[in-house]
Nucleic acid binder design. Sequence first.
RNA 1: GGCUCCGUAGCUCAAUUGGCAGAGCAGUUGACUCUUAAUCAAUCGGUUGUAGGUUCGAGUCCUACCGGAGUCACCA
Length: 518
Amino acid sequence: MTWQPNRLEAERLEKTRELEALDIDTFPARVERTHTAAQAVAMYEALEPEDSEAAEAIEVTVAGRVRRVNIKGKISFIHVEDESGRVQLLLRVNDMDEDVYLLVRDKLIDTDDFVQASGTMMRTKAGEVSVLVHEFKLIAKSLSPLPVIKQAKQDDGTVVEYGEFTDVESRYRQRYADLAVNRQVREVFRKRSQMIAALRRFFDGEGMLEVETPILQPIYGGAAARPFVTHHNQLDQDLYLRISFELYLKRLLVGGYDAVYEIGRDFRNEGVSFKHNPEFTQLEFYKAYIDYTGVMDIVERMLRYVVQQVTGGTVVEWQDHRIDFGPPFQRIRLRDAIEHGSGIDYMAYRDAQSLEGAIRGIGDKVEPGQTWGKLVDHLLSKYVEPKLIQPAFVLDYPRDISPFAKRVTYDEFHVERFEMFMGGMEMGNAFTELNDPRDQEQRFLDMASLYASDDDEAAPLDEDYLRAMRYGMPPNGGFGMGVDRLAMLLTNQRSIRDVLLFPHLRTEIVKAQAEDAN
RNA sequence: GGCUCCGUAGCUCAAUUGGCAGAGCAGUUGACUCUUAAUCAAUCGGUUGUAGGUUCGAGUCCUACCGGAGUCACCA
């Protein structure tokens, strides 16, 4: 074992040995729990007003982690927590096997240990519903103490914490400790889970089919991003972790499904930030016989449903804002949004050089040599995106930066695409999907010419996708959304890392490893 | 990758112009049969992220590295 116990851990190891010397199993396999902590308390409280004698006859066996031990000589209080909540144990030496009581009094039971207690329900003089314990046993020893947090319940029911476990790096690296100790962190991930369940319910209710498509792909595509590369040994073939699901899902419309969706992981080999993680959860759906206005209608209903399911209402508190999903979402054309935000009408500057000049003209420093499309995107993300707090659809993007969208009817220049914004973040992206294989091939070629040949952001031409499209693809609308970002919004978390259970960090050099290496 | 900030006991934090590395919590020992941030008394606890350098003297200043946060770039 490479573990070097610190002083506190050495003490716990020693206690474990003492317990074992008393022939006590410190990690038994069997537990006889009959009630969760919350159930035990609720049962007592339900019966107490009518028949307190019957309430005090309720027998329970509860189990959970010890959060606090308060020894007062021949009587002790232990707070035990399971996922449902906490319940207090009252141990009196008179009411139980003295040897067992002495284990508690002599501090062989530590905070953080898992224990099981059997007894009857009662209310203490101080008013707390508790288990009057007759039998008590250790069911798992904790060898390393969790970070110390003390909590007190105020009269109004709010829980105040004294002392904290706040070190961001430790919390991310040891999320198990973070979760074990920070109840509000557990709540964030419970909400995230509810949100994803609600998404599935919504799309299932829409009659869409949930599918699973390859994560390991021979050709990546559907977005512009650097991929992670891996290798299949037996086939001696390079494979890419997918950067989007788009091209596989649309193949399925060729196959005859009217509507499909997928919730899963995408991987992008790019910078990490408060809203970017190398692997992140994406939702995409594609539905035949609708265009992007139909997509907008679905997305609006979807968000209203999910927000309702997770928060019980239509309003989400986000930083200093209240985001209301009740009213119809704002819909504004990209061109108008950018002109409104920056004063620049990009249609007046049709090439990169003149647009760059216009941007410099408003006192903005941009790196020279960017493509026209990237400049438009710069204007969007700097002058429009941060202001879009309430849900908004920004419509009709230049064709150059949208290789999978159909042309609008009113000019040759824009395509039927929208991005969804809320909380000042881009949240989703949608098109009236291109389904003419000849047009699609030309778009692929156009895109390729925008990138240097050695730029792996330029996705390689996907011949198989074009082959699928040649068989005939129904007109359809599609949508993709960053699920993590929606989770940030619904749980009011500032960083994507706070809605990922195990966010990406540089590999930690654990002390034991470092010493092994020497 | 650039820039800025941060890293001190298990946790949360102090440490004056460079001058003996401290506190609360928890831990340990003792007291206590209704506590709940229990209380009271005593007590243990440090390679100040790592490696160098400057200095009589470094937690503090300098260099490099490791890790994290923020920001810019990148992410259509």
